[in-house]
Amino acid sequence: MEGPSNGGLLYHEVQEGKLCAVHCVNTVLQGPFFSEVDLAVLASDLDQKEQQVMLDGSNAFSGDFLSVGSYNVSLGGDFSIQVLQRALEVWDLQVIPSDSPIAEASKYDPELENAFICHLQDHWFCMRKINGEWYNFNSLYPAPEHLSRFYLSAYLDSLKGSGWSIFIVRGNFPKECPIPASDANNGFGQWLTPDDAKRISVSCNQLQAPTAGESSSQPMNPSPSEADTIEEQEERDLRAAIAASLMDLPSFDTAKNDDGDAGSSTSKSSSDPAGNDDTVRSDADPNEAVDAKDEKLVS
């Protein structure tokens, strides 16, 4: 029986500068296979070939194209999808847009694939299946985050809805990194067991949780556990809002006075010790407040 790739370890790279394209390629391959210099060489080669095609053609806009500089690497270090494709082609891997006809099956069964590359603006990251389990290798995360198969599908749909470009990577992925881990110290790469990755993710999520009174925006890509917490908090906030709105409603006696009922002028005050039993206390628990008002409306 074939053993787990890389001895069961996960290779992850933490964001360094604007090298997310490098991190993305390496985590797809699960090893420090490429550096920023390697991708820059591929980008330069692509630029030269594209410029030669424009010079050989009769395109009226070739002069504008040649004056731009590079379409495959920005001054900030962001690389084009063509560069990532060339890098992965070295390992006989194919990069396919998710909206391609040959990628139709992945829309319904994404877990049958082995890797996805995601891009928005100037950020790249990959999701990769390792030893039968899916992980998010976003370099903005301190460690790879485990993804259930159900969450993988929902997460991909969410990314597409937010404008992310999704690419599928197919082919024979390397089973072992040819570079010994002891010689692979590139400053931002690390080898982790799945348990270590989980421990690091949980620890960092706890440290980054906002304290009371602090305003904080939600993370761009919340983990499944964070999504559950957010949903529970939203439900509590909703119940509290309903309770507050019900406490602001006028009592039936007050409503009668507003309608001109002369016999209702002696309505009970909420401050009367023998006062209205259906008045909701301002310090009541929100859930109790909802129940009390529901009973009042029924009666």
Rank of each mutant, 00 (worst) to 15 (best):
N72H: 15
N72D: 15
S74A: 05
L75A: 12
L75Y: 10
G76C: 03
G76S: 06
D78P: 00
D78F: 05
F79L: 03
F79M: 02
S80D: 05
S80N: 01
V83G: 06
A87E: 07
L88P: 00
L88M: 14
L88C: 04
L88Q: 03
E89K: 11
E89G: 06
E89M: 08
E89C: 13
V90T: 09
W91M: 04
Q94C: 09
V95C: 06
V95T: 02
I96Q: 03
I96V: 14
I96F: 08
P97R: 12
S98P: 00
S98T: 04
S98F: 05
S98W: 04
D99F: 11
D99R: 11
D99A: 08
D99P: 01
D99L: 10
D99W: 07
P101T: 11
P101V: 07
P101C: 11
A103W: 11
A103S: 15
E104C: 15
E104R: 15
A105K: 15
S106M: 14
S106R: 07
S106W: 08
S106Q: 12
K107G: 13
K107W: 15
Y108T: 07
Y108R: 14
D109L: 12
P110Q: 07
N114Y: 05
A115Y: 00
I117R: 00
C118Q: 07
H119E: 08
H119C: 04
H119N: 13
L120Q: 15
L120E: 09
L120M: 14
Q121C: 09
D122P: 00
D122H: 08
H123Y: 13
H123A: 09
W124M: 04
F125H: 03
F125A: 03
C126R: 01
C126S: 14
C126G: 01
C126Q: 03
R128T: 06
K129V: 10
K129A: 12
I130C: 10
N131F: 03
G132K: 05
G132N: 04
W134Y: 12
W134L: 10
Y135N: 10
Y135K: 06
Y135F: 15
N136R: 15
N136P: 06
N136H: 13
F137L: 09
F137D: 01
F137W: 07
F137H: 09
N138F: 06
N138C: 11
N138K: 07
L140R: 10
L140H: 08
L140T: 08
P142M: 08
P142Y: 12
A143G: 09
P144D: 14
P144T: 11
E145G: 11
H146W: 11
H146S: 13
H146M: 12
S148M: 05
S148R: 08
R149M: 02
R149S: 07
F150N: 14
F150V: 12
Y151L: 08
Y151W: 14
L152I: 10
L152T: 00
S153I: 06
A154Y: 03
Y155I: 00
Y155T: 01
D157G: 12
D157K: 07
D157E: 05
S158V: 08
S158K: 14
L159A: 06
K160G: 06
K160R: 14
S162R: 15
S162T: 14
S162E: 15
G163C: 11
W164G: 00
W164C: 09
I166Y: 01
V169D: 01
V169T: 01
V169S: 00
V169Q: 01
G171A: 06
N172C: 12
F173V: 06
F173E: 02
F173K: 00
F173R: 01
P174E: 01
P174L: 10
K175V: 13
E176K: 04
